[in-house]
Write a protein that binds this DNA or RNA. Structure first.
Length: 731
DNA sequence: CTTAGGG
DNA sequence: CCCTAAG
């Protein structure tokens, strides 16, 4: 458990580069000394001393053996990684988040449907779309069903043809799903969809490479998720594939078709939720990261969607579909094209031209951030946006009482990937223009890793929504990553080309899959005990496990019903099984550099706001919506206290990294603020305190730490010697 | 981007 | 939590 060292190093030369940290002897030493002498550490913490020593030791050893020297530290990214890590996060997370949103939308939609709809329990396997759409997701079975669906989806070749990439847009109709099943249907669909398809082709063009590039093995492996578990999932998927293809569609369609589209989902089509946009801002790729290069900001322009959308009427049921499909296409296109951009920024795809202006600005912004390598900013911003969206979403809702419904949604994480082969219904298309062969892929939807929601029947729909939102948000907070599975195996080598990986071959569709993985950066098992403040995982585990929206809901005035939401991020499930990823050298390293390739960000595009008249939403999409309130849990407080005891009160970023690295929704500013409130709380009478009571013990520690570090700070600060200080004081 | 504080 | 000035 080398926390200190690490942090210190980070603080010191960390920013610059790895080497620097070792070099900076002075501050380093000082730090250690400080630590050693830190009473708080010594007294309150059992091992502080040892730890510190160890740290020192480790640092030296580290120099000697850069490799596995300090096993304990391994879990954490090397100090040097700071920059790296940030980069990684930016890259990786973004995509993840995007999916997360989508997922959220999807899940929410499902939940809503369920909630609003009948609790019907149509068989999971029911092929009928309509049927599925309505009942599909009710009850605990939901999880299982989803799993099934996803599995199928993942493996479904046929379905792939038409798939949409994002969940929210799940709406896309499956054009070819029928292909194998019903010739008529197929043809019919095709006709309807043909225009769309063509559009797709044109727009998407051939750029699969980009995606592949970003979705590297690392992402798969690095995540807690990665691992065999995923692979297994994927593998299993194929089995039912053909048979169940319809299910997928039904699922998808349900959203579209549903008269009352789930708010979240509908938002897409309606434009209430600007999450997905027609416009995607693509930032230029990172300087050197082939993998995580793509950042996307998506602006959704409802107007655009409507007007531009897919030309063909599609089915009567689909208004949404049209708009959605467009959005999807655009998105895809963007993603795909991003590669080009990366290679040759100057070059702009025909399709991209329209967006060029919009896109570019954002790009710069992101670029800058990337350069910085600090993860937080972008994350936060994104998060903010997401939250906002979520919040909006949560607003819909009518009161509904149902029996105590327990909804468990789970998805295997597997994402179906679809490729289009030209107009044919071929899922996979490989178009070799001149030099490059491009593969067109379409991801129908991403499912939410796992979502467990428990809510009293007395709760209102609004509360349900809120709950779901919270749950999803929690997941989002952890971040998501995308993994690529080929033939049921995780593709770990990001550097491999699609061709090398065998992706893009004829079999591709069958065997290509994407998975969403909770972004559990830190693997507890690997982490050093010290460093493993539970908080690191807290976000993914604990919070998810139990979220009590009461607070937020009450604030919003939605419902005060006691709601409990239980989320179990896949991470938890997979962490255990996914050892290999963790242990494998590649995996370890990958963790830092893991690429989360795709990442869509609801762009904070001014235009978006104006252009995107949230149809239904009363409120105009103001840019910055207040983030949802997430009261600190006792566990979080404890982690915070622990971290502050060690790091002091002036290094919030380090505190963040140390104890809340996995809690994407906790910024260092949040932590600082929380500390502030904690100090205040500790100084007031228990009767005056509100919210979840914080153990007095913790509060005491807060005061102690505060006092200690204040003093420490005072010591260091005084440029003006004690004399001056004294003078000031006296005066 | 981080810190530090006020709101 | 938000917003911002400073660094």
């Amino acid at each position: 458990p080398p926390p200190e060292e690490k942090t210190k190093a980070e603080g010191g030369g960390g920013r610059a580069s790895t080497p620097a940290r070792f070099g900076s002897g002075t501050s380093h030493e000082q730090r250690n000394h400080q630590l050693l002498t830190n009473p708080l550490l010594n007294f309150k913490q059992p091992k502080p001393r040892a730890e510190m020593v160890f740290q020192k030791w480790s640092s030296s050893s580290e120099m000697e053996s850069c490799g596995g020297g300090q096993v304990p530290e391994m879990p954490r990214v090397p100090k040097s990684a700071r920059g790296k890590r940030s980069v990684r996060k930016k890259e990786a997370q973004s995509p993840a988040q995007m999916s997360a949103i989508d997922l959220l939308a999807t899940v929410a939609g499902k939940l809503f449907d369920e909630g609003a709809g009948s609790l019907g329990n149509t068989s999971a396997g029911a092929p009928a779309l309509a049927a599925f759409a309505k009942d599909a997701l009710v009850k605990q079975e939901q999880c299982d069903e989803q799993m099934k669906l996803f599995k199928h989806e993942a493996t479904d070749q046929d379905s792939c043809n038409e798939s949409a990439i994002l969940p929210h847009i799940v709406l896309q109709r499956v054009v070819n799903n029928a292909r194998n099943e019903d010739p008529k249907a197929k043809s019919e669909v095709q006709d309807k969809e043909s225009s769309m398809i063509s559009y797709t082709k044109a727009e998407l063009g051939c750029n699969f490479g980009v995606i592949a590039d970003r979705w590297s093995p690392e992402s798969v492996e690095s995540g807690a998720f990665t691992g065999d578990a995923v692979a297994r999932l994927m593998m299993t998927a194929p089995a039912g594939f053909h048979k169940n293809a319809p299910e997928m569609y039904s699922l998808l369609d349900s959203m579209d078709v549903d008269v009352k589209p789930p708010p979240l989902v509908s938002s897409d089509s309606t434009g209430e939720m600007p999450l997905h946009g027609d416009k995607i801002h693509r930032s230029t790729s990172l300087p050197r990261a082939p993998k995580g290069v793509g950042f996307f900001a998506v602006d959704r322009d409802d107007d655009d969607d409507k007007s531009s959308g897919c030309t063909h009427p599609s089915t009567a049921t689909n208004k949404d579909f049209t708009s959605n499909c467009k959005a999807e296409y655009n998105r895809v296109r963007k993603l795909l094209t991003s590669k080009h951009r990366k290679v040759a920024p100057a070059r702009i795809h025909k399709s991209d031209l329209s967006y060029s202006d919009v896109e570019r600005k954002p790009s710069f912004r992101y670029k800058k951030m990337h350069t910085r390598q600090r993860t937080q900013r972008s994350t936060f911003k994104r998060r903010k946006l997401f939250d906002r969206h979520l919040a909006l979403a949560s607003e819909f809702g009518t009161a509904n009482g149902k029996g105590n419904t327990k909804v468990a949604g789970r998805n295997s994480n597997a994402v179906s990937l679809e490729a289009n082969k030209g107009t044919n219904s071929m899922p996979f298309q490989k178009s070799c223009g001149s030099n490059d062969c491009h593969v067109k892929l379409r991801i129908k939807s991403f499912n939410v890793p796992e979502l467990l929601v428990e809510i009293p029947d007395s709760a209102t729909v609004g509360s349900l929504k809120k709950t779901v939102l919270e749950a999803v948000t929690a997941i989002l907070g952890g971040g998501l990553r995308v993994g690529v599975l080929h033939h049921g195996k995780k593709v770990r080598d990001d550097s491999k080309t699609l061709i090398q990986a065998g992706i893009g071959q004829d079999d591709m569709l069958d065997n290509l899959g994407f998975s969403l993985e909770p972004n559990c950066t830190q693997n507890p098992q690997v982490q050093a005990p010290e460093d493993v403040s539970f908080l690191e995982n807290i976000d993914t585990t604990e919070p998810l496990a139990r979220i009590t929206p009461a607070d937020s809901s009450s604030k919003l005035g939605e419902v005060d019903v006691s709601q409990e939401l239980a989320l179990t991020p896949l991470a938890m499930n997979y962490q255990g099984s996914d050892h290999d990823s963790v242990h494998s050298p590649g995996a370890v390293s990958s963790r830092d550099k893991d690429s989360r390739a795709l990442f869509l960000v609801p762009a904070a595009d001014p235009n978006a706001g104006a252009v995107v008249p949230a149809n239904k939403t009363k409120r105009s999409p103001e840019q910055g919506h207040r983030r949802i309130r997430r009261p600190f849990s006792v566990a979080e407080v404890e982690a915070l206290v622990l971290a502050v005891e060690k790091l002091g009160t002036g290094r919030w970023r380090d505190v963040k990294l140390r104890a809340f690295d996995n809690a994407k929704h906790r910024t260092y500013v949040d932590l600082k603020d929380k500390w502030k409130t904690l100090v205040h709380t500790a100084s007031i009478s228990p009767q005056q305190r509100r919210g979840e009571p914080v153990p007095q013990e913790l509060l005491d520690r807060v005061l102690a730490a505060q006092a200690y570090w204040s003093q420490q700070q005072a010591k260091l600060q005084p440029k003006t010697p004690s004399l001056a200080e004294a003078r000031l004081l006296t005066q």
